[in-house]
Write a protein that binds this DNA or RNA. Structure first.
Lengths: 148, 148
DNA sequence: GTTACTGCAAATAATTTGCAGAACT
DNA sequence: AGTTCTGCAAATTATTTGCAGTAAC
């Protein structure tokens, strides 16, 4: 946790940004809820528990900043809300998601499934890929067994 | 064009919906701009040219209805706007997109690149896939040559 | 001391909803 | 007649921005 914060701190300072208490609190929430896919509002509420004086606008600004630095990825599952997902340290690409259409659960796939596909796309379309978003919609295993 | 409208009309009627003049005008705009990725507002403006009395709320309601029937797919490229993309007739899955981070251009990939990946995911995660969203971020060939 | 950062409130933007009337079956 | 559909205006929701004060280097 602490090492991770420090690395982000260095990243911030390299771009002459500061790791303020508000930003630190926001980062801690993101790290503690790494497996979730929190909206800005969700993050705000959790940060407020620790630092009640923080404003929602600051959370938005911090999340935007972290997205710029590629510390988090911003993703949208189709409800009108942006969600923020901590990027695995050192990961070149954003991980993939499985969204269950029945219960809404979101699972993560860490393994990069796309290298071959990306090779083909870069070649066929002469497009230099820097990142991707891959989300599968379907029915999770729990809902499959329930649904019978 | 007309056959295509008729097929959607039948789809609507199967679910006891009607193909009203407003819905038809909206569909025509979508078909005429098949290669674009129009927002609800974009669609509204284009429909208004033909049928000035139509309301924005009706366009939203129509697009939502068409998404439900899988005539269009709703997609979000990260700006805060939903875009609506006509699904190729008979296509089982949503096609893929290349979004250029420099100029914002969006290209489509019709070929389904994911059957092998999906097989693996269904097996490894016991997840029944019904659809997917795959978008690549990067630099298109035009911007690559300009950028030199 | 200067520049970056924050909280608050107000502004903006996208989308949804309530409702009374119109249209289709 | 009964239901579905529409336009309008108002409401809601998510996000952004202006600004005056605060904190960090």
């Amino acid at each position: 946790m602490e090492e991770r914060l420090n690395r982000v701190k260095q990243q911030l300072q390299q771009s002459s940004y500061k790791l303020t208490p508000q930003r630190e609190a926001t980062l801690r929430v993101l790290i503690e809820n790494e497996k979730d896919h929190l909206s800005a509002e969700d993050v705000y509420l959790k940060v407020k528990d620790k630092a009640p004086e923080i404003g929602l606008a600051t959370v938005y600004r911090t999340l935007e900043l972290l997205a710029e630095l590629k510390v988090v990825d911003k993703i949208n599952f189709g409800d009108g809300v942006s969600r923020f997902d901590l990027r695995k340290e050192g990961a070149k690409h954003f991980h993939h998601h499985l969204v269950c259409m029945e219960c809404g659960k979101v699972e993560e796939i860490e393994e990069d499934l796309l290298p071959k596909v990306e090779e083909k796309v870069e070649h066929d379309f002469n497009f230099r890929i820097t990142d991707h978003r891959l989300t599968f919609h379907g029915v999770c295993s729990d809902c499959q067994s329930k649904g019978k």
